[in-house]
């Protein structure tokens, strides 16, 4: 017997491609703009969101029959906020350098609409195991886009990856820079993320025409 049934596998795989939270549902754009100027921040943000979403979905799912519907959004917010504070404190205690580079971004997870969206749309109506898979799947789908965008923005904007120069030295004019290549400062500012995400959406929909909405 497979570890996951086909239906469960789809919970993880769908958000990675044809139901991606960023490129298809267009959620979580705000943080995708803010933190993708550097690849390292993208990766850590992705990992943090995977944790918060996996655990958060399970907590909400376990509580789904006792949460009063009138205050369910508040309860969801409290759960996210609690988990985010815990992540923040753990990073500060055990990965201090990293917590400094991430700074305010970890707090931004609270406002990530994908998390609230999955709590509301999935965890409130499904069991803990399936909610866990759904949370991990959606967070992975979010993380994949973040990492792709971060990769291109850091590479084209500053010529580095994870802070390591890969295209040569722009001041001493070595590597690619010796033949006249220049870093594109535009890639570092937030609008560039929208353009990269736009190109991803374009590529995805031209490969799978079924994703194109009727005008």
């Amino acid at each position: 017997m497979a570890l996951l049934s086909k239906k469960d596998t789809n919970l993880i795989l769908d958000p990675l491609a044809d139901n991606n939270p960023i490129t298809i549902q267009v959620l979580g754009i705000c943080s995708a703009l803010a933190i993708t100027a550097e690849l390292q921040a993208s990766v850590v943000m992705a990992i943090s969101v995977i944790f918060v979403m996996g655990v958060g979905n399970v907590v909400i799912s376990l509580l789904r029959n006792v949460i009063p519907s009138k205050i369910r959004i508040i309860v969801q917010l409290v759960v996210v906020a609690t988990l985010v504070i815990m992540v923040d404190q753990v990073l500060k205690a055990f990965a201090y350098e990293l917590s400094k580079t991430l700074g305010a971004f970890v707090g931004l997870i609270i406002t990530n609409c994908i998390i609230m969206g999955r709590f509301e749309a999935f965890a409130l109506g499904n069991g803990p195991w399936r909610s866990f898979l759904d949370g991990i799947g959606n967070a992975l789908g979010y993380g994949v886009i973040l990492v792709i965008v971060g990769f291109f923005r850091e590479l084209l904007g500053t010529g580095t990856l994870f802070g390591i120069p890969v295209l040569g030295d722009p001041i001493a004019k070595t590597g690619l820079y010796s033949i006249g290549y220049e870093n594109n400062g535009f890639m570092i500012i937030p609008p560039a993320a929208l353009i990269v995400v736009g190109i991803l959406i374009w590529i995805q929909r031209s490969r799978n025409k079924a994703l194109i909405e009727e005008a």
């Binding site: 006792v66 949460i67 009063p68 009138k70 205050i71 508040i74 309860v75 409290v78 609690t82 504070i85 815990m86 404190q89 753990v90 500060k92 205690a93 055990f94 201090y96």
Partner: peptide, 27 residues
């Protein structure tokens, strides 16, 4: 609703407080 909210606040408060004071020396 009120009872649920009150319990939630106390539980969350306790979790966060113990977390914070437990990690404080390291931080």
């Amino acid at each position: 609703t009120v009872v649920f909210a009150s319990i939630m606040v106390v539980v969350v408060g306790a979790i966060l407080a113990s977390f914070a004071s437990g990690l404080r020396p390291r931080i």
